[in-house]
Design a protein around this nucleic acid. Structure first.
Lengths: 117, 117
DNA sequence: CCCAAATATTCGCTTGTCGATATATATCAA
DNA sequence: TTGATATATATCGACAAGCGAATATTTGGG
């Protein structure tokens, strides 16, 4: 990640991408269908934003059968981790992030047990 | 500042705006001509981005004669301050922020003595 | 091989952002 | 009032971001 700071901020500047990252920061690893259900939008919409986060080096993906699990890249530069953590601390309980976490918890037929960070 | 996090990040997602904020975070208070000289671009360009930062509630301005001094709003929510501080700690010595600070220090005929935070 | 499910990609369109240029406003001094 | 300086705003065209819808790809099962 040799991302410039304004490039990171631009990535976080989209609400869908930020909601994905906050969910991943809180839950550790999630597949696309879980993110789609939690955020409540169309699957291609989520998929495209996840691809951007992957291209920027912010997340990693892993295939397991039909599902592709995304997680926040563990070896991010410390300033990036700090910013994600600050945002989560400041807003994890606020709208719309708390609702996202709640919808995820209520999701039926999740492909795997929730795995926390 | 009831700014949503993704709105803050969108503001920081433009290099010109981020450079302005980093200069203000380091120097305390600067007028438009100082920011223009340090960043090395056209004055309307700087002015417009400062207006956006003002409308978002990130900076305050103060007129003194012909000059208008901008400063980072002192009562920002703590998560905003944290993010600005993290960014400054991680990148204040890097390109292009270090060069900006250097150009500012070398600027002739500054309208006032530098006032540090 | 064929189907279904999960995910990714493409297309067309709308909207917004950015930068450059030109112009307007404000302040001060003569 | 005139002029000079500092700053703000308006306008324009180019360009990128974003979205919905449709389609393609991958995988596993029968």
């Amino acid at each position: 990640m040799d991302t410039k700071p304004h490039q990171l901020f631009a990535a976080l500047g989209n609400e869908t991408r930020l909601r994905c990252l906050m969910l991943l920061a809180a839950q550790g690893e999630l597949c696309v269908c879980e993110l789609t259900h939690a955020i409540g939008t169309a699957q291609p919409h989520i998929s495209r934003h996840l691809a951007q986060l992957r291209e920027l080096g912010l997340v990693l993906d892993r295939r397991e059968g039909l599902w592709i699990y995304y997680r926040i890249r563990p070896d991010l530069p410390s300033w990036v981790s700090s910013i994600l953590r600050e945002t989560q601390n400041g807003f994890g309980e606020a709208h719309p992030f708390a609702e996202d976490a709640h919808r995820l918890a209520m999701m039926p037929n999740r492909p795997s047990a929730p795995r926390c960070a």
